[in-house]
Computed example of a mutant assay.
Amino acid sequence: MLAHAVRLDSVSKVYGRNGRGVHALDNVTAAIPRGTFTAVMGPSGSGKSTFLHCAAGLDTPTSGSAWIGDTELSGMNETELTHLRRQRIGFVFQSFNLVPALTVRQNVTLPLRLAKARQDRRWLEEILQRVGLAGRADHRPAQLSGGQQQRVAIARALITRPDVIFGDEPTGALDTVTAKEILGLLRSCVDETGQTVVMVTHDPVAASYADTVLYLADGRIVDRMDAPTAERVAERMTSLGAWA
């Protein structure tokens, strides 16, 4: 088994043409080990979301290559990328992106239905138990708090047993107490089941749950921090890019 769950090799992403393009990513190389929690931070416009989108196959690099495990994403057509995202990648966004008409159970199993994959009821019940929603399986999103809705989103991300879970500001819409619960849940995905989590965040407290923080500024990785604390992260952020 490969040591890395996610890899970017000399990835650049330019938006626009005719010499007026914006370099969202500029020759970025990174390798994220399996079974780790990585936070990606940087000032607004530093390329954080583009990093995540290119790594997850949601966007195509202008140059360079992105890999999920031993699978290179460049060269795959949209049908192949959709298949890969449904089976090997989980997503958790700031907006929960739940289907209002579906129950918790139906929202969680939606990726399986889209992929026409068999449902493992025991695995579903285990996930619902793990995220604290065993008693809410028949509720609809409108009957849940924001934190409970994000738990549904995490359960949905886990249902296919993905190689990587990508989070884009997953606690950005939550209060402090609920955010800590969600971050603890993501941390347990790494510690208890060996998932790989890659999370874009602007919050030093959120980043402190990670094993490693990658710092982006002006489309480049300018630093990394292992075993981060909220205080060290906050201090480092004050001297990055436009915030310097």
Rank of each mutant, 00 (worst) to 15 (best):
H53E: 12
L183A: 11
L102C: 11
T171F: 13
D59E: 13
L8N: 04
A217F: 11
K13F: 10
P100I: 12
S49V: 01
R122S: 08
L144T: 05
P170D: 00
A157N: 04
A24E: 09
G172S: 05
W123H: 15
G57I: 08
T160G: 09
V190R: 02
G172D: 04
V6T: 04
A30S: 08
N77G: 13
G135P: 02
G75I: 05
A31R: 13
I68A: 00
D163F: 04
D175H: 11
G42E: 10
A55C: 03
G75P: 06
K180P: 02
S95C: 08
Q148C: 07
Q87H: 15
Y15N: 05
L110A: 12
N18L: 10
K116W: 00
V99Y: 08
R232M: 14
A234S: 15
R85W: 09
I221H: 12
P43H: 03
P204L: 12
P61D: 04
Q195F: 04
G172F: 04
A153I: 03
F166I: 01
L2T: 05
R85K: 13
P162N: 09
Q143H: 07
Q195S: 08
I154A: 00
I89S: 06
F91Q: 01
R236D: 07
E80Q: 15
T71I: 13
V40I: 15
V213L: 06
L158I: 10
T62F: 10
L174M: 08
D168G: 00
M237H: 12
I165W: 04
V104T: 11
H23E: 14
L128H: 04
Q150I: 10
T62G: 09
G57E: 09
R86K: 10
G172H: 03
N97Q: 09
D218G: 08
E192S: 08
V11I: 13
G57D: 08
R34S: 00
D223Y: 12
L112W: 07
